[in-house]
Write a protein that binds this DNA or RNA. Structure first.
Lengths: 229, 229
DNA sequence: ATTTATTAATGTAGATTTTACACTTAAAAC
DNA sequence: GTTTTAAGTGTAAAATCTACATTAATAAAT
């Protein structure tokens, strides 16, 4: 029984994660100040190496957990990057993943210890290696995702206002949306629960809070819907 | 200067290619009878290992060229598969690519020598490892691609009839399309040239032949269009 | 208590796009 | 010249999308 493909070349496999979060200042990504050579001290995506007994999806969730303390976050594989010298130390193929997290939920302590920091996607610093490219790629994918799945579950607090949801979509799509049309399109999906409660933080009148109705959402997903905003 | 990330585990990298072709019998994929262990004699995607000095895109085009003789074919990366024992011999991460080729253009000689064969996607044999999953994934991606880019350039002969184009789309989407609506949607894209020539093969009346107008097509791509069939 | 200021909430008409659908035409075969 | 076969063609109704402005609720200021 064969136990190696002896002539073939091996390489390191890395996983790099684009972690999106949202707050009232817009769409953000989590970056880390790299604490080892090469490029020590420069900003980077969070990442790590794939282990012998680990699949890529697990490496991605492990890395996310290490830096944020979060578990059970849905991550999606993006793309494999393989330029020969993308990492100057050793041939490394990196598979990128992205995640959407609620910016309020992560473990701030951990982030601080790792010198990680949230940056608005509009003014993030330059990143090492091909990480800038990965981020652009992830933003494109996220935009596409808005057209086939609702986003919000992950990026907003449990209770949110229509304005917050609108602003989230505006941040992701980086264009202005018509408020009335947006609300009626979202309502037509029938995946929100309107609460009796109001958020009084943003206006005299106060605005109703909503939650996502996960059951109806899952139901909708079966007949893959399209959302044209 | 650091020259290795010594603690990290290496793995083999494979590239597997889903090669789509189209003829009057429908959408097909090119498969090969594997001629080495393990799973020798079973059907498989065409694939190979990534070399030390090679990027993934190049490995994919090299593999395509080896088995079909074709050059300059656009290929798109699909996904990285990493289950621990997906290849029982050694830990191998496989990155899949798909290509669309004109089934008439490949080198039939080469295909024969490699014991490769075209199979209709509706009755392809069971494949080794996780290759069935890769094929399903590629078909989904191809369907998506039809909604954002015209297909046909690659899969049809240079001159083709509206019927052929319609049947190509029906095969990809695996649903019936209304002939009149299809034609008017395609025409509204303004990317076809209607020739004076007719194809007399399929009817008494004969049907006009068309070619793709590559320039207009490229032009359209800049303002990313959507095609709802 | 009244006024003022601020954001939330709401509906529609016109334009555009999508859908469903059936008859005529051209040419070859007989 | 009659028959056969697939090609070619248009429209009306339905659905969706877009643009757009007023009223409502409340707290703050007076």
């Amino acid at each position: 029984m064969l136990n190696s493909y002896s002539s073939a070349d091996k390489a390191l496999l890395a996983v790099d994660c684009i972690i999106f979060g949202f707050d009232n200042q817009g769409l953000k990504i989590l970056l880390i100040k790299r604490d080892f050579e090469p490029e020590k001290g420069k900003w980077s995506l969070i990442g790590g190496f794939l282990k012998r007994d680990e699949v890529l999806d697990n490496a991605a969730t492990r890395i996310l957990n290490t830096y944020t303390g979060l578990n059970d976050i849905y991550m999606e594989q993006l793309y494999a990057y393989s330029e020969i010298d993308r990492d100057p130390v050793e041939r490394t193929i990196s598979v990128s993943y992205y995640a959407l997290i609620n910016i309020e939920n992560h473990n701030a302590e951990l982030i601080k210890n790792y010198h990680a920091q949230w940056f608005s996607i509009t003014d993030a610093p330059n990143l090492i290696f091909d990480h800038n490219e990965m981020v652009e790629h992830a933003i494109r994918r996220l935009r596409y995702r808005t057209s086939i799945k609702p986003i919000g579950f992950e990026l907003l607090p449990e209770k949110f206002t229509m304005r917050q949801l609108l602003e989230l979509y505006e941040a992701i799509l980086s264009k202005e949306l018509d408020k009335r049309n947006f609300i009626s399109k979202i309502n037509s999906l029938e995946i929100l629960n309107k609460l009796d409660e109001k958020d009084m933080g943003s206006s005299r009148k106060g605005s109703y809070l909503y939650t996502f109705n996960k059951e109806k959402y899952e139901e909708k997903l079966l007949n893959d819907f399209v959302l044209n905003l």
